[in-house]
Amino acid sequence: MNKKISITIDGKEISAEEGRELLWVALENDIFIPNLCALKEKDRPSASCRLCFVEIEGFPRPVTSCTQPVTEGMVVNTRSPEVDRLVGTAFELLLSDHRLGCSKCPKNKACALQRIAKERKLKLKPKRLDKFEKDTPIDDSTDLFVLDRNRCVLCGRCIWADRHIARVGAIGFSQRGIKRKVSTFGDKLLKDSPCIECGECVEVCPVGALVFKKDYGK
């Protein structure tokens, strides 16, 4: 157990374990910081969603809170014009190729994107960017769950769960840039991959990309 230190987040004094990531300290103390790719169990945060920016006094620019260990006397602000600009843009980019239709989505009301939009008063339909509909076929080949890549935000949590919790290695990222997607070896259907249908990846999906069949069409 590391020694306890005290930090200030949004004017609230908080006691925390030294060296823990700021994101988890904030979340455990009911201070919301948007995040998608972070998982507490990960050894190394991937810091890829670019949503958990915060401002720390003495730092020249905002930092991602999932990679920032806390130190004694740290003064943090979760909101500032600069932070809002960074998070707003990252959010817009994520939503620009995300299939909406929330009312038909099985994750409706439990979706991380909806939560972030509500907390930060961001729009789910960004006006500044053109909508890019991926329109990829839905993989419903397994008995347990459905993979809808049109709703995927590429956070990589399912891949981490597949490797580190399930220890299977059925899914990974493929391609690059706008074509990047979660796929199996050789872009096969999940039922033709080493997938054992344990459902660990579905448990960690923050959005409606991986959903149990029993929840589908509810």
């Binding site: 490797r163 299977v168 290695g169 059925a170 899914i171 990974g172 990222f173 493929s174 796929s183 199996t184 070896f185 050789g186 991959s193 080493p194």
Partner: peptide, 8 residues
């Protein structure tokens, strides 16, 4: 490593 890692 899983084959999908090489495919990536």
């Amino acid at each position: 490593v899983p084959a999908v890692a090489v495919y990536s």
